[in-house]
Design a protein around this nucleic acid. Structure first.
Lengths: 129, 129
DNA sequence: CAGAATCCTAGGAGATACTG
DNA sequence: CAGTATCTCCTAGGATTCTG
């Protein structure tokens, strides 16, 4: 099954067709960040221009060791963050965003704006009651 | 907890802060479409300018009655699709995108482009082996 | 400090059968 | 035609404990 390359595929199809998760660029991209803690982790790393493990754990409120480690490993193997470790005792490990990671975050701006607008409308309606 | 309104919140934070799912516009927006079948459903409806239930079931390959109905109900209550039924026998039900739904799909264009680029690079690397 | 190893559970999703 | 109603299963995620 070939990967579709037309810009309007999936995002806003202009004609009917089949969508397979493996081949859809949108589902592929969402698959990189649709786990519970990945975006909060990415945002924290981005906001600090690099963070250490325990610092990250403190900032991403509520995340457990298990999930933080798992998420970081996946983000790393997906090339969204890079891991920089010193082989000292105790170890120092810093996580930074890669260019690829930064670019991914930027693509969420429009979605973010949509969310802001909808949340405003929801609050307005609740206030009207 | 106030809802943050700065355009760069979450999408690309400029300073450290806490992120709560309930208050983050990006997580709010993603929450509307991060179920398995919702985007494929939205894309099919968008591509056909409205679709009937069984037609939708045929087009969204692999979806079950249970999940299709559940997804449609949620999309409807989230205001992303509208349901138009005739009270005839047998019934005719058409689903259409709302403006809100269309606008949401448009916000995925950048993410889509990112996905296209990454998929190309992945294929290039696999081909090199 | 920065994790790894286990164990466990809730709920998203699938399969199947039925209906106004 | 356009759905409901059950049942089951799997796995993302959580809790807890341990370590180079």
């Amino acid at each position: 099954m070939p990967i579709s390359t037309q810009p309007t595929d999936c995002a806003l199809p202009t004609e009917p067709r089949d969508y397979y998760h493996e081949d859809c660029p949108v589902l592929y991209a969402l698959g990189k960040v649709d786990q519970k803690w990945k975006l909060p982790i990415l945002w924290q790393i981005a906001g600090h221009h690099g963070l250490r493990y325990n610092e990250l754990k403190r900032q991403v409120r509520g995340v457990t060791n298990t999930m933080l480690t798992k998420s970081l490993r996946e983000l790393e193997s997906d090339g969204l963050v890079s891991r920089h470790a010193t082989s000292t005792v105790p170890p120092e490990v810093a996580y930074r965003l890669t260019l690829k990671g930064k670019q991914l975050l930027v693509t969420l701006q429009d979605l973010h704006q949509w969310g802001v607008t909808q949340l405003k409308q929801e609050r307005r309606q609740q206030h009207a009651n």
